[in-house]
Design a protein around this nucleic acid. Sequence first.
DNA 1: GAATAAATGAGATTCATTCTCAACAAGGAC
DNA 2: GTCCTTGTTGAGAATGAATCTCATTTATTC
Lengths: 149, 149
Amino acid sequence: MQEQEYEQIFSRFLAKKGLRLTLPRKQILDAVFSLHSHFDAEQLFDVLRIRNAEVSLATVYRTLPLLLESGLIQHSMRQESRDVYEHIFGHPRHLHWICRQCGSVSETSLDDIMPYLERSAREQHFELEDFSLNLMGLCWRCKNENRNQ
Amino acid sequence: MQEQEYEQIFSRFLAKKGLRLTLPRKQILDAVFSLHSHFDAEQLFDVLRIRNAEVSLATVYRTLPLLLESGLIQHSMRQESRDVYEHIFGHPRHLHWICRQCGSVSETSLDDIMPYLERSAREQHFELEDFSLNLMGLCWRCKNENRNQ
DNA sequence: GAATAAATGAGATTCATTCTCAACAAGGAC
DNA sequence: GTCCTTGTTGAGAATGAATCTCATTTATTC
């Protein structure tokens, strides 16, 4: 399965930094990849408890930056004053359309604008590592709802 | 001067909501437009004190959402766990290139990708109100510095 | 099997932001 | 004018996500 792959990636990443893939880290990693949508630290912590993994919230918070740096997850947005992440292993990067009314998040491809961003980065000699492209407004659902009131 | 213009805009916006352009709000508005770069709530508060405006931090925090909603400022990024804003009256919208090492922020035009975003919004019947397009990495300065070490 | 370095949980701490509340204005109705 | 409603403010308390501390445990090396 794919499981081995992300584990290998993380394990190698950690080794390169002189760190180890411990049980808590493995459990956090698995929890992250068991989710197929956005999550924040607290939600991830809940998933871990449901899976009977004895990992503290502190360790969750400590592991997130490592996962970010390894490239396995990305910081995808900030919602309700919480940092929201998603795993991006296998996924292509995408834009987020965030409804300010119902909070729903939908995604679209970045293909059309990626070449432009890359060219722009090259022109400035900027080394692009990460980015967040979030678009806020009203989804069609909420737009219609508001109209009918 | 331009001063009247943003004041009028804000005043009208407030009136539409049954609110008034009070002295503290006027002072905050002027402080915002006296700045020509990004700022957070605390920095804005400092500017107000320097200008001898007796405005509390609470009022600064209360006024920022109003300025946002009026379209006079935008939430441009989050840096060091603080929300960073900038006024956008007269300015065209832009992308932010944020260096993770030195914290510098540079801007480039959105012209090339805006049509795509608008088309994509139309296709989904999404009413676009606001967006943040932030690109993180290393600026050329820090990239060179790292190389020379 | 020391010695060194990394990891962890639990709880305390930080700090940006929001909330509460009492006091104060402004404007309309009469 | 006076009453009444509604908006506004400052000061400080409260919130809560994220980080830090520290004592303890675990792994690795020599």
